[in-house]
Simulated scan of single mutants.
Amino acid sequence: MPNCLPVSSVKLLLFPVAGLLLPACATTRPAAVQAPIRQVLTTQAAAWNRGDIPTFMEGYWRSDSLVFLGRRGPTYGWQQTLDNYRRSYPDATAMGQLAFSELRITPDGPQAAHVVGRWHLTRPTAGDVGGYFLLVFRQVNGQWVIVADHTN
């Protein structure tokens, strides 16, 4: 079990039907975390490729506590992140076509995970750009959202 503490160190969940005591992280199945996160990234790429930054931003936590760490340093807050995207990518031509690759999705518990991967923008007129990212996802109100994004 990745990222689980020894049984003596974790709070135990009581499953009265089965009469078992299990560590809280024992129920985390990688596929149960990976599939919805992969879907968030697929939806984001599709929105980006339509030139739709507001829908792309639905993958992020709509909170002042969202943090985006890029070349210019940290940006805090969903609205500020949206504003930065709009400034940096004023139209669909500047946005180009986004592709994610080399995704490694690692559950950090039943409601948290991190993703390491590559991004690439194909932009015929402005030139291609790309790099790597580390995303921290959390399940908030039943939805997986990015709460921290370190992209370079």
Rank of each mutant, 00 (worst) to 15 (best):
T28R: 09
F56I: 04
T81G: 01
W144N: 02
F68K: 08
A26G: 10
L134I: 08
D91K: 07
W78D: 01
V33T: 11
C25M: 11
T125N: 07
L5C: 11
W48P: 01
L41Q: 06
P2G: 09
I37E: 01
Y60P: 00
I37Q: 00
V7H: 08
D108I: 10
A18M: 13
G70H: 05
F100C: 07
W119P: 04
A47Q: 04
S88I: 04
H150C: 09
C25N: 14
Q44Y: 05
A35T: 09
T55Q: 11
I53W: 02
G19W: 07
R87F: 07
L21Q: 10
D149K: 02
P30M: 06
T106F: 06
P110F: 11
A31I: 11
T125W: 05
S65K: 07
L41D: 03
A94W: 09
W78T: 00
T125S: 14
F56H: 06
P30W: 06
E58N: 13
F15K: 11
F56E: 02
L103T: 02
N3K: 14
F100A: 10
L14M: 13
L13C: 12
F137T: 05
G127N: 07
V136P: 00
Y60R: 01
G109I: 08
P74F: 03
Q34S: 11
